[in-house]
Design a protein around this nucleic acid. Structure first.
Lengths: 136, 136
DNA sequence: TCTTGACTTGGACTCTGTCTATTGTAGGGT
DNA sequence: ACCCTACAATAGACAGAGTCCAAGTCAAGA
């Protein structure tokens, strides 16, 4: 819950009403919102909040590792507040719904050294695609 | 090579000079170009080709399954002509270089039924990230 | 060669996101 | 409790990527 606000305060964040509202919007529901959706929900509580502030705040939350940025389709990025539990994503190709999933196995271990081309590989994202129950 | 052009003709494509040039640009080099890069290279051969045509043609190639769209970072999509050989991508977080890689294992099989939430899962993308030899 | 519907064009438009100059304010210091 | 001041918020201009549309062009079948 507001562990998040505590952690942010502990990291020296100046706590403004705008930042509080953005953090609460993300913390409140486990959905994957776009920046504009976050802005819309934040504006319900704080009508004068600006888009720029929402973008700034989201960017800060991402660099603090509190939120994950998900670029699924080349359109708007989505923001995933479930950053402290490793997971992957399952996306409906039709309606765009995103679910967090937990596959077995370790995809990083599946990439042999001779397939790394001198890269220092540090991260893997797995995106499953298909049709959800409603769209199928 | 121009297997691609043959396949497209066989699918009833009206063969225009614009489409030929776009197909040849993609077919020529195994790199991952953005739409604007494709446009630039196409324009070297056919100066009057328009952006809209390049976007249209790329979209058609994608829906025909001849080219894969790679949305890596929420910026410009990249187009991968290596659609007939299954592979995944390794991306440098610094310079954005993309390499095709071939991990072992089958990530689709790693997603248990109880983690599919009624979806009909048909596709998996695995994206490895890290620093390439030059940027490290 | 003619015809026709598919294709191309340029430009306006939308959507996401960034930047900047200005104004506002959280929170430490007194 | 009140000031400072550096950090944060704001509005709006701007930029990049992509889409849409009306009008003109042309590939390919008759």
């Amino acid at each position: 819950m507001s562990d998040l606000l505590e952690r942010l305060r502990g990291r020296g964040w100046r706590m403004t009403s705008q930042r509080r509202v953005v953090a609460e919007v993300l913390d409140g529901e486990h959905v994957h919102l776009t920046a504009d959706e976050v802005h819309a929900r934040a504006a319900q509580r704080l009508p004068e909040i600006s888009r720029a502030t929402v973008y700034n705040t989201l960017g800060e939350l991402v660099s603090l590792g509190e939120v994950i940025e998900v670029a699924t389709d080349g359109r708007a990025k989505r923001y995933d507040p479930n950053a402290h539990h490793p997971h992957q994503h399952l996306i409906c190709s039709n309606c765009g719904t995103i679910r967090d999933v937990h596959p077995a196995g370790d995809p990083l271990a599946d990439l042999p050294v001779e397939e790394r081309f001198g890269f220092t590989v540090s991260q893997v994202e797995v995106t499953y695609r298909g049709l959800c129950g409603v769209c199928a």
